[in-house]
Amino acid sequence: MADRRLIVLGCLLAAAAALFLFWGLRGPTAYILELRLVKLAALLAVGASAGVATVLFQTISQNRILTPSIMGFDALFLLLQTGLVAGLGAAGASRISGLPGFALETTVMLGAALVLFTSLLSRTRHDIQLMVLAGVVLGVMFRTLTAFLQRLMEPSEFTMVEARMFAQFSGIDRSALMAGLGLMALAALWLVRHHRVLDVAALGRTPARSLGVAYDGLQLRVLCLIAALVSVATALVGPLAFLGLLVTSLAHSLMQSHRHALLLPAAALIGALILVAGQTVFERLLHLQSTLAVVIEFCGGLLFLVLLVRGKIR
């Protein structure tokens, strides 16, 4: 576990977190510190779950450029949220907010993601480009459907949904944060026990099966895990399409290893580091409001194009 690179990453993250908490601290210290702590926890949770979810997704899809977001996972989450509010009405939806609401959303998300993406994966297994393109279009369709449902809504319902649409690191729902952290702890527990079998699964279905791995069942469980992690990230801050790609590219080039024991923690640390450091710079240094998500999208998209043109995706 004591890989030097991971330790360095951990130290960097701790430094960034400390900077985020204590830089420019004045006025009612305790109150501001509490606010910042909640925000920090959210940033850590989102960065880590985006990073881990993407590594897992790349493992079961056997390529280095897919991310759950490119495949429309977070668009699906937003659609489900909107559908829930539309179905139950604003009053009904607010009654089940907080922990039970989060649990319900996550369960529905798990079911929908499983049905959709197992069929998509099996239909397009041999064609990465087809899979990506279908995922992108699926994402567009989910987003349009979301917009469609919003148009059908009452204004009060609409404001409720609208608050969740943009990736924003202010205004974080604390009960959702607690639930999300709990879910992540469960995921971490599972990964600690099963990371070795993932190394084999990354070889692909046929080699993995010939080595005695029950591939299909494993794939199903990993998809569940991904859906849960994406739900955490999206519920907390909204969609971030290319963060995962940025994180896994960095993790791969830093670790130079296929072993999930190294890749997963590295991805979690890098994801958290990007968000915490980025948010610190944006808030404290540049005094910009809530545009970190846009910059991450830009960098991630650029990376994707560069990989594409240099032939890494063919």
Binding site: D127, Q129, L130, V132, L133, V136, A241, L288, Q289, S290, T291, V294, V295, E297, F298, G301, L302, F304, L305, L308, V309, I313, R314
Partner: peptide, 24 residues
């Protein structure tokens, strides 16, 4: 399929720039 894919990402890139400018 690579061509529409790169086009979509390229469009998303331009959109990110537009969103940044629009927010600011």
């Amino acid at each position: 399929l690579l061509i529409p894919l790169s086009g979509l990402v390229y469009g998303g890139l331009l959109m990110a720039v537009a969103t940044f400018i629009a927010i600011e």
